[in-house]
Amino acid sequence: MAHSDDSPAVQITSLNKWYGAFHVLQEVNLTIPSGSRVVICGPSGSGKSTLIRCLNGLEAYQQGTVTLGTVPLGDNARETALARRQTGMVFQSFNLFPHLTVLSNCTLALRRVLSMPRKEAESLARHFLEKVRIPEQADKYPAQLSGGQQQRVAIARALCMNPRLMLFDEPTSALDPEMVKEVLDVMTGLAHEGMTMICVTHEMGFAREVADQVVFMDQGSIVEQASPMTFFTTPSHPRAQSFLNTLLH
């Protein structure tokens, strides 16, 4: 599944973004090699969701550059669309299309964006539904599924487009505790297959097990970037220390 390529999956350089007067992203620099798993954490309002939403053009930014693979995101709508096509995104609130069955949720973009014939799209969708372990739900509607099942459909829907990079924006924050594991298991499986992943999450167990880099953000800046081992045992920045303390207690 991993696309071999020498260029990093994501290169963020001097990224700055303002909401009006509020400087939400401040001089963010980040390089994410292909095949790596990055967990972004930090207190709410630190800009972590905004950052990953900048990576597929859901948020505009005022300064800096974001390059996905070799394609720079930017004003050029065609390049942005191309870059976006290489990126899958999973949202906190699932954002499945409620009027479509699980199968149609997965096939819509295949058919409309990639012009794939119905049969081929459906068999591909079923393959990924199997992968997230809910093939039997294909003909149901999202409202008939549990939160954990819906989020797994959302992951399958994104995987159908064969992305080079998966973005997860707090994928388990809206889930009941007993459903968190089934979603994290799917994500862990993806990581082991070599998918490049960027996850905004507070699931520190997942970060410890799966991530090869933990990025800690506070007030719009990256204040610490380390391996999970270093981050969890000897965080250097006082804000990271106090953040970890609040999570553990």
Binding site: N56, G57, L58, A81, R84, R85, T87, G88, M89, F91, S93, N95, L96, F97, L108, A109, R112, V113, A154, R157, A158, M161
Partner: peptide
């Protein structure tokens, strides 16, 4: 809003 965002994220025009 998430509906439009999901559609855009999937590359739909």
């Amino acid at each position: 809003n998430g509906q439009g965002e999901a559609a855009r994220a999937l590359g739909l025009g």
